[in-house]
Measured scan of single mutants.
Amino acid sequence: ETKSLTLVLHRDSGSLGFNIIGGRPSVDNHDGSSSEGIFVSKIVDSGPAAKEGGLQIHDRIIEVNGRDLSRATHDQAVEAFKTAKEPIVVQVLRR
């Protein structure tokens, strides 16, 4: 079962304390579909994302501050987090 969660993150020394993997390839599949998503791959101990109620590894990131990342490329997702103003509201899907 997958549930949708909304989390609020604040940077600590400029970092949110997690890494992402995935992202849509720069070239779409011929039918326009994509199974890619942006997923949390690593969480830094005691970083902002590790706090209670924070992110978990394998969370799929859907949205950052209202910006849809469900079909974003990896670079677009990285840029969305880099430029996001605080508080950073992150919507994820968690299995």
Rank of each mutant, 00 (worst) to 15 (best):
S33C: 15
A84W: 02
V8Q: 13
H10I: 06
E36M: 10
K42S: 15
D12F: 11
K51V: 09
V27A: 12
Q91R: 14
L5W: 04
F39W: 06
D31K: 07
T73R: 05
H10P: 07
S70R: 13
G17K: 05
A72S: 07
S70F: 09
L69C: 04
G22R: 11
I38S: 01
G22P: 06
I57F: 03
L55W: 00
I43V: 09
R71A: 08
D75N: 13
S26N: 13
E36Q: 09
A49T: 08
F81L: 15
S41D: 15
R24E: 15
V92D: 00
D68N: 10
T6M: 09
N29S: 05
Q76H: 12
L55M: 06
S35M: 11
R94T: 00
S41V: 04
I43Y: 02
A84V: 07
E63F: 06
G66R: 04
G14C: 06
D59R: 00
S15M: 07
S70K: 08
L69F: 05
I57V: 15
V40I: 13
V89W: 04
G66Q: 04
T6P: 03
I21H: 08
V8E: 15
G66T: 02
L93E: 12
E1D: 15
T6K: 15
K51D: 08
G22C: 13
I88M: 06
E36H: 10
N65F: 00
N19E: 15
S26Y: 11
A84L: 03
F39D: 03
R71G: 09
I21F: 06
V89I: 13
I20F: 13
I57K: 06
S33E: 13
G22V: 13
I57R: 06
E86I: 02
E36V: 08
V90D: 07
S4Q: 10
V89P: 02
S26Q: 10
D31T: 10
I61L: 05
D45G: 12
S34F: 11
N19L: 05
I20D: 01
G32N: 15
R94N: 02
E1G: 11
E63Q: 12
S34Y: 11
L93R: 08
G54H: 08
E1L: 08
I21K: 12
G23A: 08
G22M: 09
G66D: 04
L93S: 07
S33T: 14
L55E: 01
E1K: 13
Q91Y: 02
R11W: 02
T2P: 05
G37E: 03
I20K: 00
V27S: 12
L93C: 08
R60H: 11
H30W: 11
F18W: 00
Q91G: 06
S41T: 08
I57G: 03
S70H: 09
D31N: 13
I62K: 03
D45P: 12
D75L: 11
F18E: 00
L69H: 00
S33Q: 10
I88D: 04
P25L: 09
D45N: 12
E63G: 11
V89N: 07
G53R: 06
E1R: 06
I61Q: 00
I21M: 12
G32Q: 15
G54D: 05
G47A: 12
